[in-house]
Design a protein around this nucleic acid. Sequence first.
DNA 1: GTCTATAACGAGATAGAC
DNA 2: GTCTATCTCGTTATAGAC
Lengths: 206, 206
Amino acid sequence: MADTRSKLLEGAMRTIRSHGIAGASARTVAAAAGVNQALVFYHFGNLDTLLTEACLVATRARVEVYREELAKVNSLRELLDLGRSLHEEERALGNVAVLAQLLAGAQNETALTEPIREALGLWVAEIEAVLTRVMAKTPLGDLADAAGLARAVSAAFIGLELFEGVDPAGANAALNALDQLGALVEVVEDLGPVARRALRAKLRKR
Amino acid sequence: MADTRSKLLEGAMRTIRSHGIAGASARTVAAAAGVNQALVFYHFGNLDTLLTEACLVATRARVEVYREELAKVNSLRELLDLGRSLHEEERALGNVAVLAQLLAGAQNETALTEPIREALGLWVAEIEAVLTRVMAKTPLGDLADAAGLARAVSAAFIGLELFEGVDPAGANAALNALDQLGALVEVVEDLGPVARRALRAKLRKR
DNA sequence: GTCTATAACGAGATAGAC
DNA sequence: GTCTATCTCGTTATAGAC
């Protein structure tokens, strides 16, 4: 059986998933973990530390799982497809939801800012690495900024997660639209050398 | 001077802006409004109703402001540029932040779901209308889904807003990257008839 | 419509026994 | 390391005077 610390981390995740950050108190988390309320403060000092630690541990675990799948990606189209299934898996597990809840909480609670930036950074770093790799093969390679794109993609993921909470059908339509847009990127990837040069010239003009 | 109802709506906005939804209690909102705490319940019944009403009123006002500017947009590039300045203005005013906070709260509080979906819908409808109009002029017109795209864009905006709260530099990099990506769209818009047909064929294959 | 007062409760956190 | 008991505070919401 798990030790108290792990039980509390697990309890924190479960509580945020089902009741949001607003419903996560030392009492509710301890109850979900099946341990005494005072142990939150014994093991973590305060509630915020427990919540952020839980988020970090869980995010590290999930990023680890996806690292090898991301390493197999060889085109932007494949990345888009993996992104969609990743979104659906994480949505079902409620992991991104926890990140989103803490991110919202971090806007006005400075104690959360740093740890949540770090958790977000784990995803960003992974996405940036893959983007850099696959973009090198396209005409966009030396013109678009993989670092910035990785951050845009991460932010969009969080936003979509929250959007889905109030309008699942709308979120689905959004994902389908992005799929279609992906076809555009595919076209660019398959461009012949002549068209490639034309595109580069256009892009440089900006 | 404004009546109590308006003062409370204004107080709710200010409180959520500066302290998030977690810091918005009947007492803090009433204090920000300069009125008695009990009046929250007299005028709105409960706190959630006040918060969602405030968000709806504010969103309606902002959408109204941007409607005429959006009507002037004639290309995806112009829309992208307007989007960026809109993001910066709303960020400074803290309006999108309120929407994001309530959206996060709505994930686990069913009383918030419907009103927030409605507020979000105000932006979505506006963006969808513009997208439909400008996309009709491009080769994407009859292939990409304006409704889905509008939802994706809205979700991404919310996500970016939250991202900016913990990593402003990263959010800025994300916006710059989207700007560069916009150039790609511009290229598509300027495609000659031959390339246009080639693109359409490619897109239809998917 | 607005106020005071208060009921009823849950919150974070700590002291101290075991 | 874990427990009970408790302090102190803020919370929603209502009753009732004005």
